[in-house]
Every structure is written in structure tokens, then in C-alpha cells.
Amino acid sequence: MAIKESRSDKIFSRCNKLLVWFFIIVISYPLVYILSASISDPQYVNSGQMWLYPRGITFEGFQRVFQSSEIWIGYRNTIFYTVFGTLINLAVTLPCAYALARQELIGKKVIMALLVFTMFFEGGLIPTYLLIRDLGMVNTIWAMVLPNAAAMWNIIVTMTFFRVTIPRGLEEAAEIDGASQIRTFFQIVLPLSAPIIAVMALFYGVSHWNQYFNALIYLQDRELFPLQLFLREILVQQKLTTELLQNSGAAEAISEHAKIADIIKYAVMIVSAAPLLIVYPFLQRFFLKGVMIGSIKG
């Protein structure tokens, strides 16, 4: 049976739709602008003539970015760090959250207090570097995946999911049938936890993909550099070259190099963000479900 909406309900519904469309436009415009600017002539971009659709289409920025063989090394390393690091994150976060979600855990309050303490206080950059150095992880892949093996906030969200979503009766039935806690976790809890696993994988994956500071601090071998560090070098080199040309007073060279620098700037944004934009739609269904369950019910 169709429910007749009152006048106030219609006004409220239309206001909500307008608000949703407003946010869609606000969020989408920067993405469309950057994509258009990456393939547009910088003359149109800098003059404001290009504000949505590309003008003076050119792919010189992408050509210059991909001409560097180190870009492909960076892609390879970043994909490895993202996949391997995310697996480590999940291997630490999921069991830890499941253990904290169980009421019978001995010393649960003390453990939670110690873990929450790390959310507000940390050792600092220098002590952390000395620790990584003493552990022999400097200039190795482990410096990229182990220091951030787990995030306390993600553990809390996952713990809430386990506590309010997984029926305690299933675990008790498994215990009656003789299943150990480890078997219960792997064969009952994890298969029912696909939404929160997808959410955590996305959170950790994005963090690893955008990570460059640890590489800047701990890595010296260029064969281990992630993509973000190579892209950062490209932008810094373009800026330094422009400044050197300005000091030399070569007007035409300055103009040409500034044009190339602008093209590369937007191309670098697309190169770094495109893989995540491609992967996210496939995880969106799990992402929304996991976030809603882990937040509202918690």
C-alpha cells in the first residue's frame, strides 16, 4: 500500500535530494577537474578557460611520467608493500580484535588500557628510527610493512563488529561439538566477517599505497622505493629546475619548463590515485555494510 506523503514530508525529501546532489557535485568536481587538467594544455588550465572538460588535449605529462623506468619499479614495490603489508595487518588485527571481543579473556581491561594508551602517546621519530635500526630493518622491505602492523582504532572497530554481529550461540555450539577456539575463529567467525575484513583491507591498503614517509626515512636502495617516493622526486625535481631557470633569466626556457611542470603535476596525481579508484567500486558493497555494522550497532 502506497503511503501518501504530507507536504512537510515532500519538502524534507526534496531537501535531502538537493543536499545529496550538492555533495555529489562538490566531491566529483575536483576529480573531474584533475583528470581534465592532466590531459589539457596548461595554458588553458592556468588561464581558467579549462574548468571542467579538457581543452587542447595532450598526453605529454603521462608520457614524461612513464618514460622513467623507475615509475614501473615504484609500481611493483608499492603493489607488493600494499598486498603484503595488508595481509600482515589483517593477520594481526583480526585475531587481536576477536580475542578482545571475548568476555572470558583474562586481563582484558589491562590489555585494552595498554593498547588504547598507544593511540595517544608514541615514542617519537628518533626513538622509532633507533628501534628499527637496532632490529636490522633499515633499508629492507620490513621497514615498510612491520612498524604499522596494526592500528588500535581498526582493532576497536573490528572488535565491535565481532561482539555485536557474530552470535555467541554459534561459538558455543562449536565448543560443544569439540571445536577449539582457533578452529572456531577460522571456520566460523572469519567466513561471517567478510564485510569487516573488506573494510580493514581497504583502510590498510590505502594507507600502504599512500605511504612515502617511512620509505623516505628508512630506505636508501632505490630498488626498494615505493611509487609515491618516485613521484615526489619528479615533482621536487621539476620545481628545482624551474627555480634554477628563473635564476638564470632564460624567459623562454622558464615558460616551457613551467608548462611541462604543470602537466606533470596533474599526471602524477592521476597515476598515484587511479589504481585505488579502480579497486574501490569492487569493495564498496562490503565497505558500506562493514562500516554501518561496526559503527551504528557499536
Rank of each mutant, 00 (worst) to 15 (best):
L94G: 01
F213K: 01
Q63A: 10
W72H: 08
I197A: 02
I73Y: 14
L125S: 04
I79T: 06
I156L: 13
V138E: 08
F80S: 03
R102E: 11
S28K: 00
K108G: 07
I11K: 12
I27D: 11
F120L: 12
I176S: 13
F80N: 00
L114A: 08
C96R: 03
D41E: 07
R168D: 04
I126T: 10
Q63E: 15
W21F: 15
P54R: 02
H257I: 07
I278N: 10
V271F: 02
N247A: 08
M50K: 05
F185H: 15
A251E: 11
P54M: 03
R168I: 00
P95A: 09
S36P: 08
I141N: 06
I188V: 14
T165R: 09
K297L: 01
Q211C: 06
L31E: 00
I264R: 00
L131M: 14
G178C: 10
F12L: 14
V32D: 05
A253G: 11
T165P: 02
F120Y: 15
F121D: 00
Q220C: 02
A150H: 02
Q211W: 04
M137C: 05
I25W: 06
L19R: 09
F66M: 07
Q43R: 10
Y75I: 11
A101K: 01
F185K: 15
G56C: 09
F287D: 08
Q284R: 09
D177C: 02
F282D: 06
I126V: 12
V110S: 13
